[in-house]
Design a protein around this nucleic acid. Structure first.
Length: 562
RNA sequence: CGGGAAAUGGCUUAGCUUGGUAAAGCGCUACGUUCGGGACGUAGAGAUCGCAGGUUCGAAUCCUGUUUUCCCGACCA
């Protein structure tokens, strides 16, 4: 590509309303442009990077034996009604009607369609295993698009689906995909961790996420400083602190005016936060519960929901609370209330603790488990930094992550909902075991931009860079320079090396700044020494900066890019 | 969906408190001087100030509504 007279632009100023590093740089460098919240155009260089990422993934998918297909984005809504996900997606689904008033949606995901496709083939146990995948734009009307390409409403996803006879075969297919994913992300140069995750809307038996480690990630990745434990915080098991058992004292009512929060009570009574119990009020499937956690802990609603096998878990309102006690938030506790009480495991280890007295402005001190009844207990809190690793006893720390890939063992959930069965050797009808596997293509692009950028702009790893080399002509009026630069351009092109020629009539500084901003890995500068057949060779990461003879340049670059 | 902020030439912003129909830098056009890390001078083009109402002799500015965008949170494969 030659820049003169081409569709190429950069923007000098920071972009208003594009605060993330990757979003800002990708827009400034002219790779993408925002059209609406969470909706982006891909410009020539941006599209090139996107395609590179897709091709790496495609290559690894093909190597794993999967076959590429393409499903429609426009999908009749009744198949989502049949699987039950029409309602569970709710407002996140873009819904529309055709001219005959038939309901359609823009596909938020494609499990249902792939099941229908698979039915065409699967009749007998001889028809499996296989894995089919696609690159397809997904549409989700996100409540809050953000961070440039990281959370958008239309995005390209590589989604794959495996079909197997039973759980063991399904595990084999699953592991193949994990390998393909590792290879893909390694080739892109992404720093990532594989973490255990919640199965969420997809359902199924197991979910793992590939989390790119960045400063602005949406997810909290839980890691151990000693072992390879890694988990999304939403499912990280917590090893409850064990406290020294004290002799039980008699509980005592104390006046605590204006004490609302745990911090207030810790200050007011001058006690250790670990001696306090926080009481939260939740409405779970319509019923009010008091939830007890140690004062230092944060409740995990997903864990709570799972413990009760509940469909809806929501914070109770003031009105809900009035039905069970006259006390207000800040003075609630488990003693003397006619409400089911759910306690975190850690609370079971506590004694002589402090909690609200269900009388506004009062707390109890020296409360013990014998002072109230616990309906149910379990692990219902978030792990926190400094906690003991549930696997090895090391120390837990957090990183922020962007979910770039996700793998699910779906089991028979979709096969049963959508009647995907096969006949086994003994002529028994059995449900198919599925797996589903997604990679967010543009998220990978954003994650790489986040991980590799510096103060001058983007720094693409070679594998995903829009071009391997840029050639800058210092003085376009100098015929020697122009001729040399063009001959180098032709030579690289002939050797299938992707090259960008900056032949614009701009001052040298402008071109240098632009080449840095768009992050081309290698740059050749054709300047004063062109007449001596000498050019400069520089790498974007700063590791190489030298003068080199044009006779050596091709072999040098071939060596670098293999 | 809760909380916060913002919307003014292509981009980034000033002006708004205390109403008098728009300003700067960058970018763009022309000419000249420059020319190895986002040059400088001169002269230009380019904005019904998000939209709709209202108050007023007069609204970018005050009031009401509305739309859009970003940030924090909730939600989220």
């Amino acid at each position: 590509m030659k820049l003169k007279n081409s569709f190429f632009y950069t923007i000098r100023d920071d972009i208003k309303d594009e605060d993330s590093k990757s979003g800002n740089l990708l827009v400034r460098s002219g790779f993408i442009k925002k059209e609406a919240s969470g909706v982006y155009m891909f410009m020539p260089l941006g599209l090139k990077v996107k395609k590179k990422i897709e091709n790496i993934i495609r290559d690894e998918m093909d190597k794993s034996g999967a076959l590429e297909v393409l499903m429609p984005a426009l999908i009749p809504d009744d198949i989502f009604k049949k699987s039950g996900r029409y309602d569970s997606f709710g407002k996140d689904m873009f819904k529309l009607k055709d001219r005959n008033d038939r309901g359609f949606c823009l596909g938020p995901t494609h499990e249902e369609l792939f099941v229908i496709a698979a039915k065409e083939k699967i009749k007998s146990y001889r028809d499996m295993p296989f894995n089919i995948y696609q690159f397809q734009d997904k549409f989700r009307d996100e409540a809050r698009p953000r961070y440039g390409l990281i959370r958008t409403r239309e995005f390209t996803m590589k989604d794959a689906y495996s079909f197997d006879l039973d759980s063991d075969f399904a595990n084999g297919s699953y592991n193949k995909m994990v390998t393909a994913y590792k290879n893909s992300f390694d080739r892109m140069g992404i720093n990532y961790r594989i973490v255990r995750a919640d199965t969420g809307l997809m359902g199924g038996d197991l979910s793992e996420e590939f989390q790119a480690i960045t400063e602005i990630g949406e997810d909290t990745v839980v890691l151990c400083d000693k072992c390879d434990f890694s988990s999304n915080i939403e499912v990280a098991p917590v090893k409850a602190n064990v406290y020294k058992k004290e002799d039980e004292k008699e509980k005592e009512l104390v006046e605590t005016p204006n004490v609302k929060t745990i911090e207030d009570i810790v200050k007011f009574l001058n006690i250790d936060i670990f001696k306090t119990v926080k009481t939260l009020v939740y409405k779970i499937d319509g019923e009010i519960y008091f939830i007890l956690v140690n004062g230092s802990r944060e409740l995990n609603e997903a864990k709570l929901g799972k413990l009760l096998k509940a469909n809806t878990v929501e914070l109770a309102t003031d009105d809900d609370l009035k039905k069970v006690t006259s006390a207000t938030f800040g003075s609630l506790g488990p003693v003397g209330v006619d409400v089911k009480i759910i306690a975190d495991n850690e609370v079971l280890n506590m004694s002589n603790f402090v909690c609200g007295a269900n009388k506004t402005g009062y707390h109890y001190i020296n409360v013990n488990l014998s002072d109230f009844d616990i309906y149910l207990s379990g692990d219902i809190v978030n792990i926190k930094e400094g906690d003991i690793c549930p696997k090895c006893g090391g120390k837990i720390y957090f990183e922020k992550g962007i979910e770039i890939g996700n793998t699910f063992k779906l089991g028979t959930k979709y096969a049963e909902a959508l009647d995907l069965n096969y006949l086994d050797e003994s002529n028994n009808l059995k449900p198919v075991y599925m797996g589903s596997y997604g990679i967010g293509v543009a998220r990978c692009m954003a994650a790489i931009a986040e991980q590799y950028a510096d103060e001058n702009g983007l720094v693409w790893p070679l594998a995903v860079a829009p071009f391997a080399i840029s050639i800058v002509i210092i003085n376009t009026k100098d015929e020697v320079q122009t001729a040399l630069a063009n001959s180098l351009y032709d030579k690289f092109s002939e050797n299938n090396i992707e090259v960008l020629l900056d032949d614009r009539d701009e001052r040298a500084g402008v071109k240098f700044k632009d080449m840095d901003l768009i992050g081309i890995p290698y740059r050749i500068t054709v300047g004063k020494k062109a007449s001596d057949n000498i050019v400069e060779f520089k790498s974007r990461d700063g590791k190489i900066n030298e003068e080199i003879s044009v006779n050596d340049i091709l072999s040098k670059i071939k060596n670098l890019i293999q």
